[in-house]
Amino acid sequence: MSKKITIEPVTRVEGHGKVTIHMDNNGNVYQTRLHIVEFRGFERFVQGRPYWEAPVLVQRLCGICPVSHHLAAAKALDVIVGAGTGEGLTPTGEKMRRLMHYGQFFQSHALHFFHLSSPDFLLVSTATPPSET
């Protein structure tokens, strides 16, 4: 009898996910699927908004890496307002962007390691095995 194990929700990651493990009659795993269960429609609803709102809107795509999205939108705006793909940016502007981004690295990586993934690295030996295999 084929069986399916569902792991839901996927915890200690950003975002929402669902994993289904499909096994055949002999209990061998023949397929594992990752389902991305989230859909928000950013691509469509940002259309029609004033262009300067873009960095503020797309920041909210992700709460852990908002700065990355913000800067990506800012780079798009550079082209729109005629500052080219970087040539028109002032040295101060570039430094501010880099500083913001490095700050995000610090925060995001530290948070990800300490709050989210460290148990997998540090506590594997003491973790209780899952109740079903």
Partner: peptide, 16 residues
């Protein structure tokens, strides 16, 4: 995400 409320869900799916 509620910004998609004025837009038919079909359009959002189509665009994405």
């Amino acid at each position: 995400p509620a910004l998609r409320n004025g837009i038919p869900v079909e359009e959002c799916l189509h665009e994405a």
